[in-house]
Design a protein around this nucleic acid. Structure first.
Length: 746
DNA sequence: TTAGGGTTAG
């Protein structure tokens, strides 16, 4: 039995301090004659533990009770609750009525609350009208602006404060450092660091934590680490920050090391630790750890309560490539926000599953609760670009223009990519000149678009323009350039780029760069050069490098080298069906059917199935897909009939079918039928039948276009007087008047 | 430790 109100109230406070609000309330309820001190304690118990709604209800109860009067301790904590639940005007009236408006603690709480509501006029008026201001009042308005992301207003208040001769304290510093990080203002950040040292504030935990975060944003890992090392006392935020430093700067193993060290120091991870950890695991692609993180957040019930951790887990699974678990977590999120949808769409798009990305985007649009934003468009546009859905992509462009954010560098770059990949180079160039071009990314995209169209010389010119504008190329720039040179037969320029990246920019080529070089030599028929190049590589060639050479052996018909290369290739990758197909194609070209069977049965024994070839066409906002030999389409009879008529016309103009591209050992008549039913021809004929004369036809083929279809498309473009743009898995083929823009080099 | 203003995330 507790002896006095005073002691009973002490217990309310102790339970609050220990985080047990229920026990705190139980004790409070048992006190028969509660005084102001008792009520104030209960209120702060709620607020301290995040029970904001309850705090507001409790203060209403108190204000209506006749036997007790609030004092200047009553309002500050409740106003803190009000700003979080966005409901404080009524309480402000009470404050005024009771005459506590100009108590410095109360006034500071009011100012901060109105800043957080975004009602800056009210906040500033209150601030200016205060009869006395202390440090807390200045900080209330400064942090209020900061937390609403109003960087410029914040800095102007800081200037006013210093003009009045008031020095910044630790609270001011830790409020404004995130603004320096947000504005990428290294100079001010470092000046503040000097100020902190001069004023002896460097041992404040909040200040140190804010510096760790700021230096991490600037990419200055050593500075962040030095501050962390010098800290005398570290809290959970310090550990979370140092983990995030390494996670955000692509050093997942260091991030994990600090996580284990944190556990060793007896700190329990919180939601924020888990969010960083999920991103870390996504980088290491360790699916087992991914499952542990997911399990941990389920056991703590965080995934149910916190959308951010849910989104982080969806993102983690998607980055690991585990789309089914990602989708399951996404479906089960109790509260989805726009970012949840964007994460799921990006997950599918980045794993090449454009159809699934589009399906999720449609579901999102059907939900009236969510309005697509910049993030949504940045995630869906690459999916449309991937499948060549120009009309859908243009619809997004329309929405972007309506909102007026078409010069956003991320969106602009996605639009450049869309137009480039959909065969509209002119529109891509137009968009490119609309976006800011200080980062190499838009340059890389436009160079890669020109490369896909076989315009190698344009790519070299763009590269020169980029350097003239003072933009630093990165690894991707050189990949785009090398690939462009390779598709355009610019062997010397390709060699020059490879040399420049190493000697002028000090970049070490990656496997991908080596792969491009092999492709460059291989396509140009310099098979021995390519082979010797691989032999001299300073790292172990992977399947893509050998695969590039095997493709060249197929194009240039070198069976002996092809055999040698495929042996090396299957040593490093025996699971990729594409390489078996390439090898069997090579044997088929020379009629070595026994070898063809051998390679095919090898692939079969390993449980590999050939990817079926298909082509698609985007007509009247509907994507029609044709598989090779398709006879189920509603117009298939008409399509085949027209193709037969076309065949006869082509032959009169000198066309002879190239049976090298038939991979079955059958009679010539049958070989001709097989060629006629290739998916790209079905899609082109469908386009011709369903669009007005002379309109261009754009189709997409999931594999590489076969040589015979390439030849036939030239004839079709002449006979039918159509411009035909075919995008395959490799590049663009632009046919007009019987000629292909690639000059038959691809 | 009955009160205001501070740091970290998808």
């Amino acid at each position: 039995m507790v002896q006095s109100i005073f002691n009973a109230t002490k217990l309310v406070n102790i339970y609050a301090y220990l985080g047990d609000v229920l026990l705190s309330r139980e004790t409070f309820d048992q006190i028969p004659r509660k005084d102001t001190y008792t009520w104030n304690s209960m209120l702060s118990s709620y607020v301290r533990n995040g029970y904001y709604r309850e705090a507001v209800n409790c203060v209403n109860e108190m204000l209506l009770a006749s036997n007790v009067q609030p004092d200047f301790y009553t309002f500050p904590p409740v106003l803190k609750a009000c700003r979080t639940i966005h409901d404080g005007t009524r309480l402000h009236c009470w404050v005024v009525k009771m005459g506590f408006q100009w108590d410095v603690f109360v006034a500071a709480s009011l100012v901060h609350m109105y800043c957080r509501f975004g009602s800056f006029d009210i906040a500033l008026k209150l601030f200016k009208d205060m009869p006395t201001r202390d440090m807390g009042c200045w900080n209330a308005v400064i942090s209020g602006f900061c937390q609403n992301g109003n960087a410029n207003e914040t800095l102007s208040v800081v200037d006013d404060m210093r003009l009045e001769g008031v020095d910044m304290d630790a609270v001011t510093i830790s409020s404004i450092l995130p603004i320096c990080a947000q504005k990428d203002d290294i100079l001010h950040g470092m000046l503040i660091h000097l100020y902190v040292i001069k004023h002896g504030l460097e041992f404040d935990v909040f200040v140190s934590n804010a510096f760790i975060f700021m230096y991490a944003k600037f990419g200055k890992l050593e500075c962040a680490q030095r501050i962390f090392d010098q800290m005398v006392v570290r809290d959970l935020v310090s550990w979370n920050s140092i983990i995030a430093v390494y996670e955000q700067n692509d050093c997942p193993h260091d991030a994990l090391m600090f996580f284990y060290e944190m556990l060793g120091n007896k700190f329990q991870p919180d939601v924020l630790t888990l969010v960083s950890l999920a991103s870390t695991i996504a980088q290491t692609r360790d699916s087992l750890s991914g499952k542990s993180i997911h399990g941990f957040s389920i056991r703590r019930c965080w995934i149910m309560e916190d959308t951010i951790i849910g989104n982080a887990v969806v993102d983690m699974y998607a980055k690991i490539g585990a789309l089914d678990p990602a989708r399951k977590v996404f479906e089960e999120l109790s509260c989805k926000d726009v970012i949840s949808w964007n994460t799921m769409i990006t997950g599918y798009a980045q794993n090449g599953l454009a159809d699934a990305a589009i399906e999720v985007y449609r579901m999102m649009k059907d939900c009236e609760d969510f309005t697509p934003n910049q993030g949504t468009w940045v995630s869906i546009l690459p999916a449309y670009a991937h499948i060549g859905a120009l009309i859908d992509g243009m619809r997004i462009h329309g929405q972007v223009l309506k909102v007026g954010i078409d010069t956003d560098v991320f969106l602009g770059t996605c639009l450049v990519d869309l137009y480039g990949k959909c065969g509209r180079l002119g529109d891509a160039m137009f968009m490119f000149y609309e976006v800011p071009r200080v980062s190499p990314v838009p340059w890389n995209v436009i160079i890669s678009c020109h490369g896909l169209h076989g315009h190698g010389e344009n790519c070299m010119q763009l590269f020169r323009d980029m350097l003239d504008e003072g933009v630093m190329p990165d690894h991707v720039t050189f990949l785009s350039l090398l690939s462009a040179c390779s598709h355009s037969g610019l062997v010397d320029q390709g060699k020059w780029c490879f040399d420049v990246m190493q000697h002028n920019y000090g970049m070490k080529p990656t496997l991908k760069h080596y792969g491009c070089m092999v492709d460059l030599f291989g396509r140009a028929g310099q098979l021995d050069v390519a082979y010797n190049f691989i032999e001299r590589m300073p790292m172990r060639p992977d399947a893509s490098v050998w695969g590039a050479l095997l493709g060249a052996c197929r194009t240039h018909g070198n069976v002996e080298l092809g055999k040698k290369v495929s042996d090396r290739l299957f040593e490093v990758d025996s699971e990729n069906v594409g390489y078996y197909v390439l090898m069997s194609n090579l044997y088929a070209k020379f009629g070595r059917w026994e070898r063809v069977d051998e390679v095919r049965s090898l692939a079969r024994d390993r449980g590999l199935r050939k990817t079926p070839g298909w082509s698609s066409i985007d007509l009247h906002s509907r994507i029609e897909v044709f598989y090779t030999g398709n006879r189920t389409h509603s117009q298939h009879e008409e399509i085949y009939k027209e193709l037969a008529i076309l065949n006869a016309k082509m032959k009169s103009l000198g066309y002879t079918p190239d049976y090298n591209f038939v991979l079955q050992d059958v009679e010539d008549d049958e070989k001709e039928n097989i060629l006629t039913s290739h998916s790209e021809r079905l899609a082109i004929m469908y386009g011709i039948l369903n669009t007005p004369p002379r309109t261009p036809i754009r189709i997409y083929k999931n594999l590489r276009v076969c040589g015979d279809c390439h030849n036939v498309t030239k004839f079709i473009s002449k006979i039918m007087e159509r411009e035909i743009i075919v995008r395959d898995s490799n590049r663009f083929h632009h046919f007009k008047d019987g000629i292909c823009s690639c000059g038959d080099y691809w």
